[in-house]
């Protein structure tokens, strides 16, 4: 993947970060079971770095809280992400980063699906197909350069 010298989107629009999730009394009660919810998934991926800018996916509105669906009983998580520009060549990379982060952090019982928000990218179907194809994802993760970039994106130690 060639990141090139020129930024594709030189002047992305920035959005405000959401505040930290406030804790509820229920969450402090050891006997209550907290189900996984949208916000929890969002908190996991909102701080992933954009491969192009020193900004998080949340600040660029690539990931948004209401574009995440989760069904605890069916063990499924669905994340739609929105590339900042329709011809963004990083779309697959961003999708992969989200996938890898979720794979590492979520319990294995969940089936994770990461897709481009419909109508926001030129090569939507191709990107979705790539991200859905387990073997292609596995192959991509074998690529040492690619995994390096993905690790950089999801490395929380680099932030702040």
């Amino acid at each position: 993947m060639n990141l090139g010298d020129q930024l594709e989107n030189q002047n992305p629009t920035l959005y405000v970060k959401t505040a930290e999730r406030s804790a509820t009394a229920q969450e402090y009660d050891d006997s209550v079971v907290d189900e996984f919810d949208q916000r929890e998934i969002f908190d996991l991926i909102r701080n992933i770095n954009d491969p192009e800018h020193p900004l998080t996916l949340e600040e660029l509105h690539v990931v948004q809280l209401d574009l995440i669906t989760i069904e605890n009983d069916r063990n499924s998580v669905h994340v739609s992400f929105t590339p900042t520009i329709p011809h963004c060549s990083m779309a697959t990379l961003i999708g992969l980063s989200i996938r890898v982060k979720l794979l590492r952090c979520l319990p294995s019982r969940f089936k994770v699906k990461v897709e481009v928000t419909p109508g926001t990218h030129n090569a939507e179907t191709q990107v979705n197909k790539q991200l859905a194809d387990k073997e292609r994802v596995a192959a991509a993760l074998e690529n040492s350069h690619l995994i390096k970039v993905i690790n950089q994106c999801i490395d929380s130690r680099r932030r702040g």
Binding site: E27, Y28, D34, D43, C105, N151, Q152, D155
Partner: peptide, 25 residues
């Protein structure tokens, strides 16, 4: 997959860090 969200949050962060230990960056 802990029943408490607080525990899961730390666990997820922790697991992520252990994955990244020797990962190429």
């Amino acid at each position: 997959d802990d029943k408490k969200r607080f525990v899961r949050r730390v666990a997820m962060e922790c697991r992520s860090l252990w994955y990244l230990l020797d990962a190429p960056i």
